[in-house]
Nucleic acid binder design. Structure first.
Lengths: 240, 240
DNA sequence: ACCTGAACACCGTTCAAGT
DNA sequence: ACCTGAACACCGTTCAAGT
């Protein structure tokens, strides 16, 4: 048994209390373990104090998490692309990737209307392109809302799945994931083919593809549905 | 001040402990207040006992919630319709309505692969129709997965929004909701029109429409995107 | 203004003891 | 097999008291 560990070296250096430092610490926990593992007591512990000390900097736990969400939303990159389709796709992928990097914080976006100057700039860029391409305003605005719901749902599902796979004690995540789906596929394959003539032949495609590929399919399919609602016209476009 | 209330009449009659009765009570809480308000102690209290008593019937709280989710999933109705589009739409609407009736339990569906005999029958019905209409297997299976994510996201968002609107102390939910969006619209309307030429004219459509209408738009747009991936063919269909 | 210890009113789960 | 009281190790938040 080693002697008592040097107390100065355990963990990281205790910082001084501030809103930024508290959010930093909360984000560290969220990124690695998810929002449910954030607790006022745990964060306070990192600053060698009690939970009451945090209330000088945040109103409550919800307020702290809202600060974290705002920081993540501000990390969403400006989308790029020549066509509105490329732009919308780029936005969806960029938003998803940003959230995927931060645990399950995406869960807090449901029912929240994003704001902030950067978000407004992004909306302006995309809505402008949709307008130029004669996408009807309702299709444009509602479509972006639907897509943002899908992005959030996909990112959240991805986090939960990763969590399930990790939980099976230390084995490589991808391998455990494969096994998890395999079990499910086997249960479906055990169904009587006579009674389920449609499910049985669809099993391979049902189980195929990784998260990224499926997400891209979902986005592209929805964009195709938006495109189908653009009135066909021999319009003369000034630009392009 | 009235005399001490009759103890027999307060609340409902205390039932006898059983898995079904426990799930009943949990569902009652979920439907009215959401899954975060379910606690082992509160449920146990309804049976005039302590939380430890529940562990003879459920493994833990997650297990109890899983039982609740299974019950709700089993309530999803068999979809109806002549075309695959109608069938898919009917399934999406039916699933959404079922979950909307049960608080935020839909949150537990993320990362969960639904099962149960009834669910399999529903999948068989829809996949069969998609197959008959020559929808490619990948579009069919992945499309249903994407749609189920969207259904869950929409139902979850709806619950959270309703929650926000209710929280503003007692006023009619619809009215508070209107006001909530109005505030948001005003903040956007305050943007300089020169710097944001695309957002400003889109404000009305951005804010228009209720939840049901927007959900239908999302489903129909996605279905249109699926339809766009059906290979055009002068195929001779045996049926219909 | 910022920080703190102690307390309040909660959690989920376990365990030894009962029937 | 089912039930229970007590305990353990947690929560978020408040409050009086300090600087």
């Amino acid at each position: 048994m080693p002697p008592t560990p040097r107390p100065a070296a355990r963990g990281r250096a205790r910082g001084v209390l501030s809103l930024e430092a508290i959010v930093d610490e909360a984000m560290r926990i969220i990124d690695r373990e998810g929002i449910d593992e954030v607790s006022m007591r745990r964060i306070a512990g990192e600053f060698d104090t009690g939970p009451a000390s945090l209330y000088a900097h945040v109103a409550n736990k919800d307020d702290l998490l809202a600060h974290c969400l705002r920081r993540v939303v501000s990390e969403v990159p400006m989308p790029t692309g020549e066509t509105w389709q490329e732009l919308v796709r780029s936005w969806a992928v960029g938003t998803r990737n940003t959230f995927v990097a931060h645990g399950d914080i995406v869960r807090l976006t449901f029912g929240t209307i994003a704001e902030g100057p950067k978000f407004v700039d992004i909306m302006e860029r995309i809505l402008g392109a949709l307008q130029d391409a004669h996408v009807p305003p309702r299709v444009a605005t509602w479509g972006l809302h639907v897509l943002s719901l899908y992005v959030a749902a996909d990112a959240y599902e991805g986090w939960i799945m990763g969590r399930i796979f990790e939980d099976r004690s230390g084995r490589p995540t991808a391998e455990v994931g494969q096994e998890y789906f395999q079990q499910f596929a086997e249960r479906l394959a055990a169904l009587p083919a006579k009674q389920y003539p449609a499910i049985t032949p669809n099993l391979t495609s049902l189980m195929s593809g990784g998260g990224d590929e499926r997400f891209a399919f979902g986005v592209d399919t929805f964009i195709a549905g938006m495109a189908a609602q653009v009135p066909a016209e021999g319009a003369d476009r000034a630009d392009g």
